[in-house]
Design a protein around this nucleic acid. Structure first.
Length: 849
RNA sequence: GCGGGCGUGGCGAAACUGGUAGACGCAACGGACUUAAAAUCCGUCGGGCGCAAGCCCUUGCCGGUUCGACCCCGGCCGCCCGCACCA
């Protein structure tokens, strides 16, 4: 009996696949299936989280291929971004060289995993060929009015004189300089994603193969709310420029009669104007800007306000209402001004109590009388409107409608829908990104780079020894003639947010060499992606941007699909125990061994007798040193065991804990499975009964594994495979056709998980081609069912006996048998049966008393 | 605060639509093989009582619906994730 040797078998099969060009996409007119895993950032190494992600995709790709689909399963690189610039700054390496060298390393690492990827379609987003096409469609959207310029706020590091990304701001300070970061306004490019806000919400309803959680997160992120936008006129002279009054937004027009004050955000234009005129107001507004922006700070921040002394007139009662500036009002949401109804809004109530402003209840809960009052807790529940003139007696929804109707009739406002979602600021003051293909001309303004001059390529002779954008200080790159008038002009030196790069790559994969950004025929053939797989951390930004860009490009005629990803699966992480020395230093798993007292110790520090503390189980990370590299596993147990383990121990959406024992278990399975094939003797005919049993077990296994794979329950599917292997092994009286069928099915069922092993097994069976191209086994429901079933017999809900009957036996017949059963009779001694429940082929329950 | 998810052996977990709770794996323990170890194979493995047949308890807690509840409903407790002064 020969041991299975992954070290020789795996390279052998990979060479075979390579030789046959086995993974080049077939387009033969059969139904298509597009499987895509979120492409990686080329950080330098493939880690276990990548591996799990791609193995899941590979299981889908291989099983769909076996089921007869034309499968598209490409891979590429999300290659622009800051780490490359950081490497340039820290180590003097050019971002381009660093990135492409990482890609080369990671490509080789990925290839070792035996993934069925079509490498002929590979590209990196930093290839000029790719980003040039991106520039082309960017200009198309520009012409369509979906791209525009306005002032946007950036994080500015005053010491390094540079713009910082949000992740470079730590506790309000620049990560490199440590200087307190300022907010600065810069003229920047935006994509009009808000044009699609409604459509992006509506589209979520069609995504029935997305996790509910992700759909909710997107819906909340877009944050649509319906309400009333209206203007409150000043009582008395209006401040200059505010003759019409102050415009507010509310979702609670039903509570207008409970208005107690009008609130302005500190950044509201009127607040600013007042601050310019009065230093005390300026001081107050400045005070509002103080304090951290962390969650804890916001939670604890006390509400503070400033009475402007101004009064506005209540739209219904005509009463004077004071205008306050308040720190809890957001300038970016709605109109930056509100009317406050303290009785029915907790924030307003806190504020009103502090500044002794009126609290007027106008919604009465059921059962409460006209004396209903609130103390320190605002009433936000359902009820009936009171103290509200013409709204009295209405419920909340009716009152909202009526209030809006009245305001609209008076001409001072209208019903309005607003969104939390802002337009997408895509300008980055960085080098390593896609250049924005615009030329600024002093007389013509922003001018498109003509199509024949695309791509606008990044210059390579740049330096990173000073902070700021190298494109901006490059001696020649930005100086060009205006394409429109020929005058001296300058290029835009901002580059695009890398989320733009990843918002359409799935479409480019359908024909990565196309002259157009997207080949319409190819996109029509392959899109949408049938199964997209990646981390939940992209639930909002990447997935929302991709949905938006897909709509925009489809509206521009580049393709014809609304939703890019028909199915989405968000997989869990690979986690590992952490280990620390007494001095707090982290210790790598490879350096950890069991000590004599049952604890763990560092192998390298064995002599000191020092014990390690086992810490939390956390995501594998360099900082905690709890990393196991995929390469280590290939070396020790082989790819297949590793592939099997990352899917076997937990449901795919949940985190899986990497343990050495777990991989060994997977490795043992590989050996056990192989030994069945290795010992296969076609000449052994077997015994009839055993053959029939094995045949039935085969159909059962095919059914269970197929359903597990289809339903993304890979852990359950693998458990069934383990059980099936045990069944075949234990059933040593079975041979002949039954055994051949069992092994044939087994080889095909394990193929998506352990493809190298499966090929070896397939060959051992004497099959000619590759298991890769063998059809997925089918099961026969009749053959998969047992002839006899064991029915548990419950008496008063407790299991007391069991009975073996023919499958499908009618309840009346079962009933007779049960009542005749000796055990049951003994049990029923002295009791009378009141009711008998028989569920066919399932269970019997006797109710007796 | 709002929204979502989860709670099952020593551990990771399974249980299709309400029908034998704990499949499969890990760890542990016992045994076989071996001079020995590793590897492999066989067996035990939720808790309690019992010589045994068997009985009782057990899916975070309390209650409900049902012939029957890990599953459905109500209420609590705990953990995780997302958003968050969004009017």
């Amino acid at each position: 009996m020969a041991r299975y040797e992954p070290k020789t078998a795996e390279p052998r099969q990979q060479a075979r696949w390579a030789q046959a060009n086995a993974f080049v996409t077939r387009d033969t007119g059969r139904p298509k299936y597009y499987v895509l895993e979120m492409f990686p950032y080329p950080s330098g190494n493939i880690h276990m989280g990548h591996a799990r992600n791609y193995v899941m995709g590979d299981v889908v790709a291989r099983s769909k291929r076996a089921q007869g689909f034309d499968v598209l399963h490409p891979m590429g690189w999300d290659a622009f971004g800051m780490p490359a610039e950081n490497a340039a700054m820290e180590r003097g390496i050019h971002p381009k060289g660093w990135t492409y060298s990482n890609i080369a390393t990671m490509r080789e690492q990925l290839k070792l995993l035996g993934l069925s990827l079509d490498w002929s379609r590979e590209f990196a987003t930093c290839d000029p060929e790719y980003y040039g096409k991106q520039q082309a469609w960017f200009l198309e959207l520009y012409r369509r009015g979906l791209v525009y310029r306005k002032d946007g706020v950036v994080n500015w590091d005053p010491v390094d004189n540079t713009v910082l990304a949000n992740e470079q701001v730590i506790d309000g300070r620049g990560w490199r300089s440590g200087a307190v970061v300022e907010k600065r306004k810069l003229n920047q490019w935006f994509l009009r994603i808000t044009d699609y806000a409604d459509d992006l919400i509506e589209g979520l309803k069609t995504l029935d193969r997305w996790p509910e959680k992700v759909r909710l997160m997107q819906e909340n992120w877009i944050g649509r709310s319906k309400g009333l936008q209206m203007t409150w006129a000043f009582a008395g002279p209006a401040p200059e420029g505010f003759d019409a009054g102050v415009e507010i937004y509310t979702t609670r027009p039903d509570t207008l009669f409970g208005a107690s004050f009008l609130g302005l955000a500190p950044d509201h234009p009127l607040s600013k104007q007042l601050a310019e005129a009065d230093p005390r107001v300026a001081e107050f507004v400045a005070k509002c800007r103080e304090g951290g922006t962390s969650q804890a700070d916001i939670e604890q921040a006390e509400k503070i306000g400033w009475d402007t002394g101004l009064k506005v007139r209540h739209p219904f009662t005509g009463a004077d209402v004071p205008v306050w500036i308040a720190n809890f009002i957001l300038s970016e949401y709605g109109t930056g001004a509100i009317f406050a109804c303290p009785a029915h809004d907790q924030r307003d109530l806190d504020f009103a109590r502090k500044y002794d402003l009126p609290v007027i209840p106008v919604v009465r809960p059921e059962g409460a009388g006209d004396d209903f009052a609130v103390d320190d807790e605002a009433y936000v529940g359902p009820g009936t409107i009171f103290h509200s003139d013409f709204l009295d007696g209405l419920d909340i929804e009716a009152a909202k409608a009526e209030a809006v109707r009245r305001v609209e009739a008076a001409g001072t406002g209208q019903g309005a829908t607003i969104y939390r979602l802002r337009d997408w600021g895509v300008s980055r003051q960085r080098y390593w990104g896609c250049p924005i293909p615009i030329i600024h001309c002093p007389s013509c303004g922003p001018v498109e780079v003509p199509a024949d001059q695309l791509p606008v390529e990044l210059p390579e002779d740049v330096t990173f020894d000073t902070p700021g954008n190298p494109l901006d200080r490059h001696p020649t790159w930005k100086h060009v003639k205006c394409p429109s008038c020929g005058a001296e002009a300058t290029r835009e030196t901002d580059t695009l947010d890398t989320f733009v790069d990843s918002s359409w790559y799935f479409a480019r994969f359908t024909d990565p060499k196309a002259a157009q950004p997207i080949d319409k025929a190819a996109a029509d053939r392959w899109l949408p992606v049938d199964q997209y797989i990646g981390g939940v951390e992209h639930a909002v930004l990447h997935l929302l941007y991709a949905r938006f860009v897909t709509r925009a490009l489809s509206d521009a005629g580049l393709m014809d699909v609304k939703e890019p990803f028909a199915g989405l699966f968000t997989q869990g992480m690979v986690v590992h125990e952490t280990y620390r020395r007494p001095d707090g230093q982290w210790v790598e798993p490879t350096d950890v061994e069991l000590s004599n007292d049952g604890g763990v110790r560092s192998a390298r520090q064995r002599s000191t007798g020092e014990t390690l503390t086992i810490g939390d189980i956390e995501k594998m990370s360099k900082s905690k040193k709890n990393v196991v590299a995929p390469a280590e596993i290939l070396e020790s147990h082989g790819v297949d065991a590793g592939r099997l383990f990352v899917l076997s121990d937990s449901p795919p959406e949940r985190d899986v804990q990497w343990t050495p024992g777990g991989v060994e278990g997977a490795s043992r399975f590989v050996q056990r499975a192989w030994s069945l094939f290795d010992a296969y003797d076609p000449a052994f005919a077997g015994e009839d009964k055993a053959n029939a049993d094995l045949l039935r077990e085969t159909h059962k296994a095919v059914k269970a594994v197929s359903e597990g794979v289809e339903g993304f329950r890979f852990n359950s599917a693998i458990a069934k495979l383990y059980a099936f292997v045990a069944t075949i092994r234990d059933n040593d009286k079975a041979g002949g056709e039954a055994r051949r069928q069992a092994l044939s099915a087994l080889a095909r069922l394990i193929a998506p998980f352990t493809p190298h092993l499966a090929e070896e097994c397939w060959s051992r069976l004497g099959e000619d081609g590759m298991v890769l191209d063998a059809p997925w086994p089918v099961w026969d429901a009749a053959l998969a069912a047992d002839d006899e079933v064991v029915l548990p017999i419950q008496i008063n809900g407790k299991r007391r006996a069991e009975i073996r009957v023919a499958r499908g036996m009618e309840p009346s017949a079962v009933e007779a048998l049960v009542l005749a059963d000796e055990t049951v009779k003994a049990r029923l001694e002295g009791l009378s049966v009141k009711k008998i429940v028989v569920v066919k082929d399932r269970i019997v329950n006797l109710v007796a008393g």
